[in-house]
Simulated scan of single mutants.
Amino acid sequence: MDADRLPLFCDTALAQRIERVEAQLIAQGSEAAHRRRADTAGFVFPFAGGVASFAEEDSPLNKVAGLGFGGVPSATDLDEVERAFSARKSPVQIELAHLADPTIGALLTGRGYRLTSFENVLGLRLTGERERVMPTGITVRPSGDDEFEPWLDVVAEGFASPDAQGVPSHEEFPREVIARAVRDLTAAAGVVRRVALRDGVIVGGASFRMAEGVAQLTGATTAPAHRRRGVQTALLSSRLADVAAAGCDVAVVTTQPGSKSQQNAQRQGFDLLYTRAILVKEA
């Protein structure tokens, strides 16, 4: 990385753009879950510039995303959101960027929300061509429709066995729940898949989505037996080359604080843009 490179500065306009495309991703994945289930249990509706989403029981898509850049939610709006989640016996989980309107945090804690965790949003300015870094024995290529199930298997296996470095996530999901959510996001949200092979064997999977010039790196994982061999670096550098060539001006990735994923991203030149506070109110 160039020692003279200026870090990417994140103002509220950039944060709002990133949070807006994140809300779009969650909404589209949740709507795909509703179509798959063919029932009326789920919901997606706009909420104060973001989106409130319930996909299905215990889904990682059950949350409020993108809040904080479209005004302060009214008590009536919050009542509606809380009733919707409560009717499904689900807590309300709100992701609130620290660059959002600061009065919202005080409003939520006053209503009984508690701070449970943080997650970091990192970004990289994309200019020119990007190098694809491929350690010996590892290749990365597009994942075809004929190998969706093997790709899904390795992604679900990796997410079900998170890296132990850094602050642990406040959430854990069964493998089958992760698999359904990934399938829904891939089916409906324009997510593009990549697969990593080590000596010809599928050992990792990753994906990305492009919207409004933002390249969302929507997940990358390596099978536990093949970690610490450069697979994550290969998946990250390959996707960055792809999205830069497609004309995106910024790439973003969300990580647990202090995690191996954050370390890998910063080695590739990503800067910490902002932190999301995870606020939860039990049903």
Rank of each mutant, 00 (worst) to 15 (best):
P162T: 11
V21W: 00
L236K: 07
S86T: 07
E56W: 15
A84G: 14
R141F: 11
E119V: 14
G50V: 08
V140D: 04
R239A: 11
E95N: 11
G190N: 02
P91N: 08
A283C: 09
S259C: 05
L273K: 10
D101Y: 05
F159R: 01
G71R: 14
G70L: 02
R20W: 03
L8Y: 06
S261T: 07
R183W: 05
G49W: 02
Q216L: 09
D163M: 10
D145E: 11
V121K: 14
S117H: 13
R194T: 06
L152H: 02
Q263T: 10
P73V: 03
Q24C: 08
G247R: 10
R37N: 15
Q216W: 07
L67N: 01
S238K: 00
S90A: 15
P162G: 12
A265F: 05
R83P: 01
D58H: 08
R209Y: 00
F43N: 09
E129R: 09
E172C: 03
E95K: 15
I178R: 04
L6N: 08
V51D: 00
T139F: 09
N62T: 08
R88A: 09
F173C: 03
L122Y: 08
E119R: 15
K260W: 13
V72T: 12
F118L: 12
T221L: 03
M134D: 05
T255S: 04
E171M: 14
D58I: 01
T116H: 06
E282A: 03
A188C: 08
H170G: 11
A187K: 10
L152C: 09
T139L: 13
D101N: 10
G158L: 10
A265V: 02
L78M: 14
L61A: 08
E172G: 04
E131M: 09
P102N: 07
G230E: 01
S237G: 09
R229F: 06
P257S: 12
A277Y: 14
V182D: 00
E57F: 12
R193S: 05
V92I: 13
Q93D: 06
A225W: 14
A100S: 15
V253R: 03
F270R: 04
D242L: 15
L272D: 06
D163G: 13
Q165W: 00
G137E: 04
M1L: 13
G71A: 07
E129C: 03
D146C: 11
R83H: 04
V155G: 00
L115I: 00
D163C: 04
E31F: 04
G110L: 07
Q268R: 09
R198E: 13
D199A: 05
M1Y: 08
A160I: 09
F43D: 06
V280F: 02
S117A: 03
G269Q: 11
R132V: 15
H34K: 13
G50A: 13
F118P: 00
H170Q: 10
E172Q: 08
Y113T: 00
G144C: 08
V177Q: 05
